[in-house]
Computed example of a mutant assay.
Amino acid sequence: MDFPQYHNIKPRTRKEREGMRDREATEKMRLKERTGGYHQYEEFMGISRPDQSSNMYIPEAERFDKDFAAIEKKRREEEYQRKQQVLSGKREEVINREIGRWKMMENEEHKDKERLDLKQSNWKAGQKNNSSAAYNPITLDYDPTEQGKQLMEQDEYVRYKAGLRMFNLDSKMNSQFNVITGEPRRPSNLPNKPY
């Protein structure tokens, strides 16, 4: 036995029935049900329920969080931490800049010292306050430098040569006795040769 085919229609809700009487609601319903693919209907949910992509959207857990003191404390702590990080970054930058500046100054000083040493060793430049002789003209002491040592050796050699000449002249020009008293005379001592 064949059952007859019934065309069942879903009953309309009270809202839909009331909307049939309201022209604006009818137009909204027709726009919502419209087909064709070129229009996407976005139903306005009201100001209390904005879309999640909207700037007005806020989750329900945050909506009812009314502890403003805790929020303000958290905001101040975040602001303080941000300022501390900025200050720490600036401090590090200043320290690194100072380290670089001191290294550059040390390099410049080292280069100047090398340049001065080269000039002093090759051309006698940079010795304006140094005396030309390697001894102190007031105390007549030799300088404790290599030039002072060489000057002392030269002076000792000159003294040795003068003593040797004096010995030779005395031994060759004088006789073996004193002419005035007639006593035997002693010749001068032969000086020791310096190293």
Rank of each mutant, 00 (worst) to 15 (best):
K111C: 07
D112G: 00
R82Y: 04
M105Q: 13
Q85N: 15
D117P: 01
E93K: 14
Q85V: 03
E114P: 00
D112V: 03
K83M: 11
E114R: 12
Q84T: 02
D117T: 07
G89P: 03
E93Q: 14
S88N: 14
Q85G: 13
E108C: 03
N107P: 00
M105T: 06
S88C: 10
E106A: 09
E108G: 02
K103C: 01
E93N: 08
R115M: 03
R115A: 07
L87P: 04
Q84C: 09
V86C: 07
V94T: 11
K103Y: 01
L116Y: 00
Q81Y: 03
D117S: 05
R82A: 10
E106W: 01
R91K: 14
M105Y: 03
M105N: 07
E106F: 00
Q84H: 02
K111W: 03
Q85S: 13
R101L: 07
G100W: 03
I95D: 08
D112P: 00
R115N: 09
R97D: 08
L87T: 08
V94D: 06
E98M: 11
G89T: 01
I95V: 14
E93L: 08
E93I: 04
E106V: 00
V86L: 13
V94L: 12
I95N: 05
R101T: 04
E93P: 00
D117Q: 14
W102P: 02
D117N: 13
L87G: 03
G89F: 03
V86W: 09
K111T: 12
S88F: 06
K83I: 07
D112L: 05
E92M: 09
Q81N: 11
G89M: 12
Q84I: 04
Q85L: 13
E106C: 02
L116C: 00
E109C: 11
R91M: 09
N96W: 04
R91W: 06
K90H: 13
E106D: 12
K103T: 01
I99S: 06
Q85E: 15
Q85R: 14
R82N: 04
V86A: 13
N96M: 07
L116G: 02
K83C: 02
Q81D: 05
M105G: 00
K83V: 06
K90F: 09
M105W: 02
E114N: 08
I95P: 01
E98T: 11
V94G: 03
W102F: 10
E106I: 06
R82Q: 05
G100A: 14
K103D: 05
R82M: 06
S88G: 11
E109L: 13
E108H: 04
E98Y: 02
E98R: 13
W102Y: 10
R91C: 12
E114S: 12
K83T: 05
E114G: 01
R115E: 09
Q81G: 01
K111S: 07
E114T: 07
E93F: 02
E92P: 01
E106R: 10
K111Y: 01
E106P: 01
S88Y: 10
G100M: 06
R97Y: 06
I99H: 09
G100R: 11
Q81A: 09
V86E: 15
Q85D: 13
M105E: 15
H110F: 09
R115G: 00
G89D: 10
E114A: 14
I95A: 12
R91G: 05
M104D: 12
E92C: 08
